[in-house]
Amino acid sequence: MIKKIIQFYIEGFRQMRLGKVLWAIIGIKLFVMFAILKLFFFPDTIKNESRNQGIDKSEYVANEFLERVPVQLNDTIQPYSNNKQTKI
């Protein structure tokens, strides 16, 4: 059974005409994506930065979120006293 399936694929690939060109395109594309783009242009930002800073990933992300606020935390914030039933 397995031999038949393998034979089915081998014959299928052997008889391809246009398919060979398409497979070549897929191969080149995957090579460019994973061996060039991913490797050299798309590093894992959180992994690298957290390692550089010697902290764990969640700590790094927490710092990112806390440092992005456009004003100093606790600077302008007043306790919220509106009707608690209100929402969007």
Binding site: W23, M33, L37, F42, P43, D44, T45, I46, E64
Partner: peptide
Amino acid sequence: AIGVATGIILEFQFGTNWSNYSWL
């Protein structure tokens, strides 16, 4: 054949350009 895996590039971008979002 031409379109397959073009979406993977979006996942690369999540990890590099949009890492805070990606983590969240």
